[in-house]
């Protein structure tokens, strides 16, 4: 009797998210799939066009599709490892026996709370080629200056560099993971005569691998969906060199009002991210260590 009551209560309490999932996730997902096979602009009735939207993309008829894929992949390949290594190194140093750890942690986290638009404004100013602080500092140190986001070659590396400013969240996650590693594991390495490099490769890395894995997956899913910096700082330029995929999609949908082909663009992104996620999960068996497994 009670179990039945509990079952009803369970469904009732879960109702908001169940409805939300259907209305705002599952439904739109299917609708988007259907739309991707139509020609749908604002004033025209949607018209079924089969695979036309997809063939237009893959045949290169729309020159921006491959370009934006390339640009976004370049950004992801550069930014995800850079952010992870950067955040991890700082977390390692923070994990030493230091004073004021909480203070440093807060300072490093601080930039992550800034609204994306404001981040873009600040960096537009800092990276200004003529008047910006970064070039002035480089100049006074006798180093070569750069055009940063205003040159085709340097725009993506500049955005990656900028993104390092907001890796504080990842650093906090890593630091919490590091502090959760039991001391006795390190002591065991010491007793066996291991050095600090060995305790890093045999204790720290394996124990941290699930956290690294989690951040890797979230990092590349997020990286593929970068939008705001391209929208505000570069408008995809110069010469489409920062035409991020989601910016390209946004333009197709909301500037050119081509909802059908924009849906196809979205589904291609979905498939790419799914394949990559599956690949990363497959590979995780080889390098991610879960404590629970050893005990079974």
């Amino acid at each position: 009797m009670r179990t039945k009551k509990e079952a009803i209560a369970g469904w009732l309490f879960a109702m908001p998210v169940v409805l939300g999932f259907i209305i705002f996730t599952l439904g739109p997902m299917l609708a988007s799939l259907v739309l991707s096979f139509t020609d749908y602009r604002v004033l025209i009735q949607p018209k079924f066009v089969g695979f036309d939207n997809y063939t237009n993309l893959f045949s290169g008829l729309d020159p921006f599709f491959y370009k934006s894929l390339l640009v976004t992949s370049y950004y992801v390949v550069l930014s995800v490892p850079a952010q992870l290594i950067f955040a991890f190194s700082i977390a390692l140093i923070m994990n030493r026996d230091i004073k004021f750890r909480a203070l440093f942690r807060s300072i490093y986290y601080l930039p992550s709370i800034v609204p994306a638009v404001a981040i873009s404004m600040i960096w537009l100013w800092l990276l200004n080629p003529d008047l910006g602080l970064v070039n002035s500092l480089l100049k006074s140190a006798g180093l070569p200056t750069s055009l940063w986001i205003f040159s085709e070659k340097t725009v993506i590396p500049s955005l990656v560099f900028m993104s390092l400013w907001t890796t504080g969240g990842t650093m906090v996650i890593f630091l919490a993971g590091l502090q959760g590693i039991p001391r006795h594991l390190y002591e065991a390495v010491e007793i066996d005569g291991g050095n600090s490099l060995q305790s890093f490769t045999h204790v720290t890395l394996p124990m941290m691998s699930p956290t690294i894995f989690f951040n890797l997956v979230m990092g590349f899913i997020g990286g593929f969906q970068s939008f705001t910096s391209a929208y505000i700082m570069t408008q995809g330029g110069p010469n489409n060199a920062s035409l991020f995929y989601v910016f390209y999609l946004y333009r197709e949908a909301f500037t050119f009002q081509k909802m059908g082909s924009a849906s196809a663009i979205a589904w291609v992104l979905f498939v790419i991210i799914s394949i990559l996620t599956v690949l990363v999960f497959r590979s995780s068996n080889m390098w991610v260590y879960y404590e629970g497994e050893a005990k079974n």
Partner: peptide, 22 residues
């Protein structure tokens, strides 16, 4: 249900954006 909802965390928002807007 929990599993299905968790998986949707990986779904790019770009996929649901257009139909939701419509």
């Amino acid at each position: 249900v929990f599993g299905a909802i968790l998986t949707s965390m990986m779904l790019p928002y770009a996929v649901t954006l257009i139909p939701t807007f419509i």
